[in-house]
Measured scan of single mutants.
Amino acid sequence: MEVRTIKVFTTVDNINLHTQVVDMSMTYGQQFGPTYLDGADVTKIKPHNSHEGKTFYVLPNDDTLRVEAFEYYHTTDPSFLGRYMSALNHTKKWKYPQVNGLTSIKWADNNCYLATALLTLQQIELKFNPPALQDAYYRARAGEAANFCALILAYCNKTVGELGDVRETMSYLFQHANLDSCKRVLNVVCKTCGQQQTTLKGVEAVMYMGTLSYEQFKKGVQIPCTCGKQATKYLVQQESPFVMMSAPPAQYELKHGTFTCASEYTGNYQCGHYKHITSKETLYCIDGALLTKSSEYKGPITDVFYKENSYTTTIK
Results as ranks from 00 to 15, higher is better:
residue 190 C to M: 05
residue 298 K to E: 10
residue 292 T to H: 10
residue 170 M to S: 00
residue 190 C to V: 02
residue 190 C to P: 02
residue 249 P to W: 02
residue 85 M to C: 07
residue 258 T to Q: 13
residue 286 I to Q: 14
residue 33 G to S: 07
residue 43 T to A: 09
residue 95 K to S: 11
residue 21 V to W: 14
residue 313 T to I: 10
residue 299 G to A: 08
residue 309 N to H: 13
residue 216 Q to W: 03
residue 42 V to Q: 08
residue 233 K to E: 07
residue 271 C to D: 15
residue 308 E to V: 13
residue 173 L to C: 04
residue 247 A to P: 00
residue 43 T to L: 03
residue 315 I to T: 13
residue 83 R to T: 01
residue 203 V to C: 10
residue 28 Y to V: 02
residue 90 H to A: 14
residue 68 E to L: 14
residue 54 K to E: 04
residue 208 Y to K: 02
residue 303 D to H: 01
residue 112 C to M: 12
residue 9 F to S: 07
residue 115 A to C: 09
residue 30 Q to V: 11
residue 29 G to T: 00
residue 176 H to R: 10
residue 156 C to M: 10
residue 86 S to R: 11
residue 251 Q to E: 15
residue 233 K to F: 05
residue 314 T to Y: 11
residue 312 T to N: 14
residue 162 E to S: 08
residue 279 S to V: 07
residue 61 N to M: 15
residue 241 P to Q: 11
residue 306 Y to Q: 06
residue 2 E to N: 14
residue 248 P to L: 12
residue 289 A to R: 07
residue 226 T to K: 15
residue 282 T to N: 09
residue 222 Q to K: 15
residue 63 D to A: 15
residue 237 Q to P: 04
residue 203 V to K: 15
residue 306 Y to A: 04
residue 2 E to D: 09
residue 40 A to E: 06
residue 305 F to K: 05
residue 241 P to V: 06
residue 152 I to C: 06
residue 89 N to S: 07
residue 156 C to S: 05
residue 308 E to Y: 07
residue 217 F to H: 08
residue 144 E to A: 10
residue 124 I to C: 08
residue 275 K to Q: 14
residue 255 K to L: 09
residue 277 I to S: 05
residue 103 T to S: 06
residue 36 Y to E: 01
residue 116 T to N: 11
residue 265 Y to M: 13
residue 230 Q to F: 09
residue 295 S to V: 13
residue 12 V to K: 00
residue 226 T to A: 11
residue 226 T to M: 10
residue 293 K to C: 13
residue 71 E to A: 11
residue 137 Y to V: 04
residue 313 T to D: 10
residue 27 T to F: 13
residue 225 C to F: 03
residue 228 G to K: 05
residue 111 N to W: 01
residue 169 T to M: 14
residue 156 C to V: 08
residue 77 D to K: 03
residue 283 L to P: 09
residue 15 I to P: 00
residue 136 A to N: 06
residue 299 G to E: 06
residue 41 D to S: 10
residue 208 Y to V: 05
residue 209 M to I: 04
residue 286 I to M: 06
residue 216 Q to F: 00
residue 265 Y to C: 01
residue 57 Y to L: 08
residue 42 V to E: 03
residue 107 W to V: 13
residue 196 Q to G: 07
residue 67 V to E: 12
residue 97 P to T: 12
residue 216 Q to V: 06
residue 156 C to Y: 07
residue 148 F to L: 09
residue 268 N to Q: 09
residue 222 Q to F: 14
residue 249 P to A: 15
residue 82 G to H: 07
residue 32 F to H: 08
residue 20 Q to M: 09
residue 195 Q to F: 13
residue 173 L to M: 15
residue 297 Y to K: 05
residue 137 Y to L: 05
residue 217 F to Y: 08
residue 273 H to Y: 05
residue 159 T to W: 10
residue 27 T to K: 11
residue 300 P to V: 15
residue 308 E to P: 10
residue 69 A to L: 05
residue 51 H to C: 02
residue 33 G to I: 02
residue 167 R to Y: 11
residue 74 H to W: 06
residue 54 K to H: 15
residue 299 G to C: 04
residue 181 S to D: 10
residue 34 P to S: 03
residue 2 E to W: 15
residue 187 N to E: 11
residue 269 Y to A: 15
residue 28 Y to T: 01
residue 22 V to P: 06
residue 37 L to W: 10
residue 10 T to L: 11
residue 221 V to R: 07
residue 294 S to K: 14
residue 220 G to W: 02
residue 132 A to M: 06
residue 70 F to P: 06
residue 242 F to S: 01
residue 162 E to K: 07
residue 118 L to V: 08
residue 117 A to T: 15
residue 62 D to T: 12
residue 79 S to G: 14
residue 184 R to L: 09
residue 191 K to S: 12
residue 56 F to Q: 12
residue 291 L to C: 14
residue 205 A to D: 05
residue 254 L to N: 07
residue 133 L to W: 00
residue 106 K to S: 09
residue 137 Y to A: 04
residue 129 N to F: 05
residue 227 C to R: 03
residue 220 G to L: 03
residue 221 V to A: 09
residue 297 Y to T: 05
residue 221 V to G: 04
residue 239 E to A: 08
residue 122 Q to E: 03
residue 156 C to K: 04
residue 265 Y to L: 13
residue 305 F to L: 08
residue 60 P to Q: 04
residue 185 V to C: 05
residue 289 A to S: 05
residue 108 A to I: 10
